[in-house]
């Protein structure tokens, strides 16, 4: 019973942090929300995976957040001014989007649970929320940080569901490497072309 309550709290945390990542302007807050999201992801994956494997996912997620944060910290502050306007004007739209995602997740989780018994409603709800929010993030912007964030959220949602059907160490290891690779690729793309690196001598 207690674990169920915690699982639903994790789902609530995912919903709140998804909204923050979609609607907030400050990259520090967004990355903080992502880090908090990984705690919820950790809890939901450990419903089907051993604690150690879930912890590995949590640590990998935080490493990705750290990599993105450190890269963004080294960039000039005017990097995402263009994004700011869009975020400022589209906040209501984003609240509606998150509402739609939550409704879709609530509507479909019972059906998925019936098709694949044993997954658990909170696991399905958390997974669908993350996948939906990730897809929204990808659809709304071409900003590198937000695209990376969207992909990481989408992968986290997928990993929660996939943990229920595949517990192989190799697959979970490769998924962790994929997350890390995505974080590093995102950091690289963030750094590429910024004024700090413009004097590079690449050919």
């Amino acid at each position: 019973m207690a674990t169920d309550i915690i699982s639903w709290i994790a789902v609530g945390l995912i919903l709140a942090t998804s909204f923050v990542t979609l609607a907030h302007r400050d990259w520090r807050v967004i990355l903080g929300a992502l880090a908090a999201q990984y705690i919820a992801t950790f809890w939901l994956t450990t419903r089907h995976l051993p604690f150690v494997m879930g912890s590995a996912k949590l640590i990998t997620g935080w490493m990705v957040v750290a990599a993105l944060g450190m890269t963004r910290l080294g960039l000039p502050t005017d990097e995402d001014n263009a994004e700011d306007d869009f975020i400022r004007h589209g906040r209501g739209f984003r609240i509606i989007l998150i509402g739609i995602i939550a409704l879709v997740a609530a509507g479909s989780m019972a059906r998925i649970e019936a098709g694949t018994p044993g997954l658990g409603l909170p696991v399905i709800a958390g997974s669908l929320l993350l996948i939906g929010a990730g897809m929204m993030q990808l659809g709304l912007t071409s900003d590198v940080l937000r695209v990376t964030l969207g992909l990481l959220m989408l992968l986290a949602g997928f990993e929660i569901l996939y943990a229920a059907v595949e517990s192989s160490i190799l697959v979970n290891g490769l998924l962790a490497v994929t997350n890390l690779g995505l974080g590093i690729a995102g950091s690289y793309l963030l750094a590429a072309g910024s004024s700090v690196f413009e004097s590079g001598d690449e050919s």
Binding site: T178, G181, Y188, L189, A192, G193, S199, E202, S203
Partner: peptide, 18 residues
Amino acid sequence: NMAAMLVIPLLVPLYQRP
């Protein structure tokens, strides 16, 4: 997927905006 991520530094030099 991992191979696709390794391709990224090949395609975007550090001085070029993606």
